[in-house]
């Protein structure tokens, strides 16, 4: 999952340029990785790739703004309801 997410970010927002180093904790917004519409692309990718649906109030930087935040969010989301 981590690699898939990193690949998507690099391919879509950095045109595949891998030398723009960013760590899994780096904020996409602060690093300038995602433009003002990029978040919608990111949401669409995750919904399709992992078969989940975002609620409006889930589209917030706390859930989406770094690779680690995404993984944390997805881990919660993908756990089947008890």
């Amino acid at each position: 999952m981590r690699e898939e997410l990193r690949r998507f970010i690099i391919d879509n927002f950095l045109f595949g340029v891998e030398d723009s180093q960013f760590s899994d904790d780096d904020s996409f917004l602060e690093k300038g990785l995602i433009d003002s519409t990029g978040v919608l692309e990111l949401v669409a990718f995750i919904e399709e790739q992992y078969g989940i649906r975002f609620q409006d109030d889930e589209i917030i930087p706390e859930n989406l703004d770094s690779v680690n935040k995404l993984i944390q969010f997805l881990n919660k989301k993908l756990v089947p309801a008890a």
Partner: peptide, 10 residues
């Protein structure tokens, strides 16, 4: 429209 669809937090 694409900007209008942005969540407020973003």
């Amino acid at each position: 429209p694409i900007l209008q669809e942005q969540p407020p937090e973003y």
